[in-house]
């Protein structure tokens, strides 16, 4: 809470490792979050090798078994190993979370920056369109997407991505607007640089901080959205291993007789989103110059 130490200013001579170390030292919570995210990512990438069982294979000899040495987290009503399903579910969560966040964030970035840069009619139209999507209930969009295109992973991603776009473009536009009025953008124009160059070289780098913070939080939001959609029967579909799906149907039915079916996937979602958010918060503190001064 004390005043600013002098070494707080960014130091170009510092190596990546040093900055990382510094981040860890200054942001223990963020480091913990990062650790969770890394564990989740490693689990997802290496699911085939570390999962003890086939996540979709039914085993009618071992239905709703409590955690044991054979099945560390127990089995579900089809006798599928929960541990293996959670491990493979990390991959689904990563795919859904990252793809939605990246597509949603990137489209939002493009729309937001160009909307701010060109202004006028383009801005007006983009803003009205994003108003419509923002106001439109997510559930209707998701229901419609699933009913029209079917419920596969890619359609779930589509349903989750669409509402993220305007939210990102709003924020990006707001910060881009302040940059647009800066003298150096006018200078660049005066020099006769093309729109693309100005946007890419001057505007985009300057909105990167809020953008990265937002995209990080999108990953967590997308994982939660997938869980909610699955709960309503609109998400990823059986027998694909996905955390949200594991909480739907059976989990609730067996919540009191075989609680492990409901508890472990719920904990997995919580830890993942918690990790992403803790990391995102720390990232914000590190990137946002206004908040840096502590």
């Amino acid at each position: 809470m004390s005043a600013t130490p002098a070494d707080d200013a960014p130091d170009p001579r510092r190596t990546v490792w040093q900055s990382a170390l510094r981040f860890c030292r200054r942001e223990p919570l963020g480091t913990f979050g990062l650790l969770l995210v890394i564990i989740m990512a490693l689990t997802g990438f290496s699911a085939e090798w570390i999962a003890p069982y086939n996540p979709t294979a039914n085993d009618f000899a071992a239905m709703t078994e409590p955690p044991s040495l054979e099945h560390l987290l127990g089995t579900d009503q089809f006798g599928r190993d929960l541990m293996s399903r959670i491990i493979h579910g990390a991959r689904t969560a990563l795919i859904v979370g990252l793809t939605s966040a990246i597509f949603g964030g990137f489209s939002g970035l493009v729309l937001g920056v160009s909307s701010a840069y060109f202004g006028g009619k383009i801005d007006l139209i983009v803003q009205r369109l994003s108003d419509i999507v923002m106001a439109f209930p997510l559930i209707i969009l998701a229901l419609a997407v699933v009913a029209i295109f079917g419920p596969g992973v890619q359609n779930v991603i589509l349903a989750i991505t669409i509402p993220l776009i305007p939210r990102c473009s709003r924020v990006v536009r707001a910060s881009a607007l302040t940059i647009r009025s800066m003298p150096y953008v006018d200078a660049a124009r005066a020099c006769g640089f093309g729109h693309t160059r100005i946007i890419l070289r001057h505007m985009v780098p300057n909105v990167m901080a809020p953008f990265l913070i937002m995209v990080t939080s999108f990953v967590g939001q997308a994982i939660l959205a997938e869980a909610s959609l699955s709960y309503l029967g609109l998400g990823v579909q059986e027998p694909v291993p996905a955390w949200g799906l594991m909480l739907q149907g059976g989990a609730e039915e067996y919540a009191s007789t075989a609680p492990w079916i409901a508890i472990f996937p719920g904990v997995a979602i919580m830890l993942a989103v918690l990790g992403i958010n803790l990391f995102g918060d720390a990232l914000r503190d590190a990137l946002d110059p206004k908040l840096r001064e502590r």
């Binding site: 949200g244 909480l247 979602i269 958010n277």
Partner: peptide
Amino acid sequence: GGIATPSFW
């Protein structure tokens, strides 16, 4: 924690 917990769960 509030943000990370699915409310239906």
